[in-house]
């Protein structure tokens, strides 16, 4: 078993971004009913059962950015989360699955919690991801948002989840959006940058495609759906459009971009659904943490219950599993 973050194909070349190319997206056609239909049938066309289902759920764990982004987060709370990231499944489940090592893809926290997380994860190899740039709304002066990135990096963050200024998308101000994200990417330095598009605020799938393309052109390593704070968070139709944008960008530039759905995904069923999307629309490389992350908090608990059932044949109670 090799559950390292680099188990599958990785970016051989990190996305360096390219100058803003309006003609790659300005006239994009996205038919919403058709996207919804495709999204709805993805999970009715594919099914994973038995050992395969167990393996796919384990894979979801290793692609998971185990997250806490709440106003009442404390360092103790973060430490508890990190313990779960290090040891996401109970021993008897690990044994039953024949696994000796498993950890989540990352832990994702607010900037002021990065220090605590980095200490708690020391030596584990689990990266710390920090939200930044005025999360979740992003409505702060750009210099402060960039300073926040530098703070998080200074605290030990390995990955930065930035938020975009939604107004730039709603106004069609693509150069402003491009410049903002490019500046953030520069501030991130070696740390991988995930661009949160807050698709629930962008409303239309065309906007989602356009914002995705601008973020990638500006150098995003990952594009991410949501902060978890919008009215609507990760949905399959939105994800479908984002991964198609990602495919198109890769086709044009050769860079592989990662995808992170986040918010609202709570069940093991969701974990399977998004993996089916990645496999069908992109392929196996996008089932590895290098190119795919699930931003979730309560999903792990449901996966653990399902895997417990797989191993024991008995339905599990969450009270018997360690809290995240």
């Amino acid at each position: 078993m090799n559950a390292d973050a680099t188990a599958h194909g990785t970016n051989t070349l990190r996305n360096a971004g390219i100058p803003l190319q309006l003609d790659w997206f300005e006239t994009i056609a996205v038919n919403t009913p058709a996207a919804e239909r495709r999204a709805a049938t993805l999970t009715t066309r594919r099914s994973v059962k038995k050992e395969w289902q167990a393996a796919w759920l384990v894979n979801a764990i290793r692609c998971m950015d185990l997250t806490t982004l709440a106003g009442d987060d404390t360092e103790d709370r973060v430490r508890r989360l990190c313990a779960k990231a290090r040891r996401p499944l109970a021993d008897h489940i690990m044994e039953g699955l024949g696994l000796d090592r498993l950890m989540t893809g990352a832990v994702c926290v607010y900037p002021t919690m990065v220090g605590a997380a980095a200490r708690a994860l020391e030596g584990s190899g689990i990266p710390v991801a920090s939200v930044a740039t005025g999360f979740p709304a992003g409505l702060m002066p750009l210099d402060l948002r960039l300073a926040e990135i530098r703070y998080a990096l200074d605290q030990g963050a390995d990955e930065i989840d930035i938020v975009i200024t939604r107004a730039h998308v709603l106004d069609g101000n693509w150069s402003a959006l491009y410049e903002e994200i490019a500046a953030m990417r520069e501030a991130c330095g070696a740390a991988h940058m995930k661009a949160i598009l807050a698709t629930g605020d962008l409303k239309t799938l065309r906007n989602v495609y356009k914002a995705s393309m601008v973020a990638m052109q500006a150098g995003a390593d990952f594009i991410k759906t949501s902060t978890g704070k919008e009215g609507v968070n990760a949905t399959l139709p939105v994800s479908l459009v984002m991964v198609r944008a990602l495919r198109d960008y890769s086709h044009e530039t050769g860079y592989r971009i990662g995808f992170k759905p986040a918010g609202g995904m709570k069940t093991a069923k969701d974990a399977i659904a998004w993996q089916i999307l990645m496999k069908e629309e992109l392929g196996n490389p996008w089932l590895s943490p290098a190119l795919f992350r699930l931003g979730a908090s309560s999903m792990l608990g449901d996966i653990e219950r399902q895997l417990d059932h797989h191993v024991t044949g008995r339905y599990a109670a969450s009270s018997r599993h360690a809290l995240a």
Binding site: K49, A55, G98
Partner: peptide, 16 residues
């Protein structure tokens, strides 16, 4: 039937 570890390498769907 392949093991979970083996399936993690292939990420196949398997029979359903």
């Amino acid at each position: 039937m392949p093991s979970v570890t083996e399936i993690l390498e292939t990420m196949d769907y398997g029979p359903a």
